[in-house]
């Protein structure tokens, strides 16, 4: 299995993601108010919290889909400082994006391509893989997410859960070092959530470094190494799941959990 998904082989000591002093403004709105985070290779970090708390924005800042207003982001030794001059900067962003696969709430599959086409698109255009190589790899990945028989279907003919699994395969096909999940199950019908969560759990078992923004508390409890409660643009609490769910230290956490459970 591990030939398909290559996980970080760094020593456990060096963090693969290092965020320092991250701020993000939308106009006058201060969405992220200076957060730091280190994620070790193979670690699964789940970010939960009330909506509007800046979770998604934080995740999108990691691969520069949102440009941070201040701070430094380092992914697998690629360092970008906010407000750096262009040039180098642009190349670094693409380097980070190649290392960080992302899965979106709305799947964002390319509707004009088949499932297979979606998966091989980036390896062929970005990495310069030949179509045969990419297809072989994509077929393995589609099988891994349990969709090998849907390879020639267009996204419109797939269920939400199937689409999200194709999206995961698409991200994995770029052989990322880390995976970012932006509320991957929020747009799904309840009975379809399971199949996506199951894939994510297997991915975690493979040792993939994952940062997951989700409302799926079961996933957080069962899979996460650390759970972060983010509220009002800052970390309200960081703790292992058992601790955070059973014995929260912060008042804000208790409030949130009381609200949800």
């Amino acid at each position: 299995m591990s030939e398909i998904i290559r996980t970080a082989e760094q020593s456990q000591g060096t963090p693969i993601i290092r965020v320092r002093g991250l701020h993000k403004y939308f106009g006058a709105l201060h969405v992220i108010r200076g957060v730091d985070l280190d994620v070790a290779p193979g670690e699964v970090v789940v970010i939960i919290g009330p909506s509007g708390g800046g979770k998604s924005t934080f995740l999108r800042c990691l691969n520069w889909l949102e440009e941070p207003s201040a701070g430094t982001i380092e992914v697998d030794n690629v360092v970008i400082k906010a407000r750096e001059p262009l040039g180098q900067h642009r190349q670094h962003i693409r380097d980070i994006r190649k290392k960080a696969g992302m899965v979106f709430q709305q799947f964002n599959l390319f509707p004009h391509m088949t499932a297979l086409g979606n998966v091989i698109e980036a390896p062929v255009t970005v990495k310069g893989l030949s179509k045969q190589e990419a297809t072989a790899k994509a077929e393995e990945l589609l099988e891994w997410v349990g969709l090998s028989e849907k390879r020639d279907e267009f996204p419109s003919r797939l269920s939400g859960g199937q689409q999200q699994r194709v999206a995961i395969a698409r991200a994995l096909c770029m052989e990322p070092k880390i995976m970012l999940f932006d509320e991957p199950t929020s747009a799904l019908d309840p009975e379809l959530i399971g199949e996506v969560v199951e894939v994510m759990e297997r991915l975690a078992d493979e040792g993939m470094t994952m940062v997951v923004v989700t409302h799926e508390l079961h996933f957080a409890r069962d899979v996460a190494d650390r759970v972060i409660l983010m509220a009002d643009g800052v970390w309200a609490e960081i703790a292992p799941p058992q601790e955070l769910f059973t014995n929260p230290k912060e008042e804000r956490t208790r409030q949130f959990l009381a609200h949800i459970l």
Partner: peptide, 10 residues
């Protein structure tokens, strides 16, 4: 989202 997905893939 389409543009973002493509960019996120590098």
């Amino acid at each position: 989202g389409q543009r973002e997905a493509a960019q996120a893939l590098g």
